[in-house]
Design a protein around this nucleic acid. Structure first.
Length: 238
DNA sequence: AATCGCAACAACCGCAGGGAC
DNA sequence: GGTCCCTGCGGTTGTTGCGAT
């Protein structure tokens, strides 16, 4: 039986008061982050450690960027969601000053609806067949009805293997917004990882101008069955 | 002015991964 | 290898604010 993360008797719940915030800030400023389980007692807070961690990470950290998302941030979130799915912490990691919770909320409250309005299924980033509206840069990808972008020579490729082999390239967004790290390199290391007859390939993702992803995040395994989904979606918002 | 409905956002909860023992 | 604990993640719920009626 898992021990509860904290003794809930006598613990505060709900919105944080200014006084509590200040206590948490003061404590972390002095002692640093970590040891969340023991932190509330040490800091004199009647809160669960998880709650303290969340409050700090999502709202109190000094490098948090508040305020509306810019168009460049929206584009990047959409692009990364197409690539990574609901991996909010990874997505937020590409947006300086934004937290996973903030990105998640923004996706659920704004971007999802925006895509739906454009006739794009936010779950797989495909154009809904029955939807009249089309994205300005959207083309239907053969009979797969997949969104494709403006990558020369790739928009009509129907064979996934040849498409991928052509696409060992710098794939994602370059941007004028230098404060955001938008550059990703998508490579397909066939020689090392791909064997004919197997149903999986490994796709390596490396940021070009920041620290690398953590090892566990570096490699995505993608079934060849998903290539039509994943691959053109990847280039949608270039 | 009251209240209703909805959107946005803050916070909680359960679970999984990983390290220490 | 098994267990415990800490931490982080993602889904979900609760709360608040605001516009419409």
């Amino acid at each position: 039986m898992r021990r509860p993360c904290c003794d809930r008797d006598g613990m505060n719940k709900g919105a944080w008061s200014k006084h509590e915030d200040q206590k948490l800030i003061d404590y972390i400023t002095t002692h640093g982050e970590g040891s969340w389980r023991s932190l509330p007692k040490a800091a004199g807070l009647h809160r669960c450690g998880k709650s303290c961690r969340l409050r700090w990470i999502n709202y109190l950290r000094p490098d948090i960027k508040r305020g509306n998302f810019g168009q460049d941030e929206e584009d990047l979130i959409t692009k990364l969601h197409a690539l990574l799915g609901n991996r909010w912490s990874l997505i937020a990691g590409r947006l300086p000053g934004r937290t996973d919770n903030e990105v998640k909320n923004y996706w659920n409250s704004h971007l999802r609806k925006k895509l739906i309005k454009l006739g794009i299924d936010p779950n797989n980033h495909r154009v809904n067949q029955n939807h009249g509206a089309t994205h300005p840069q959207t083309t239907h990808h053969n009979d797969h009805n997949v969104i494709s972008g403006s990558i020369n020579g790739h928009g009509t490729t129907s064979d996934a293997a040849s498409c991928l082999e052509e696409y060992e390239t710098s794939a994602a967004a370059s941007s004028d917004h230098h404060h955001l790290n938008l550059d990703l390199t998508i490579a397909f290391p066939f020689s090392d990882h791909y064997e004919h007859g197997h149903d999986h390939r490994l796709i390596e993702i490396e940021p070009q101008n920041n620290e690398p992803f953590k090892a566990k995040d570096k490699i995505m395994e993608v079934s060849t069955n998903n290539i039509y989904t994943t691959f053109p979606t990847l280039i949608l918002f270039r």
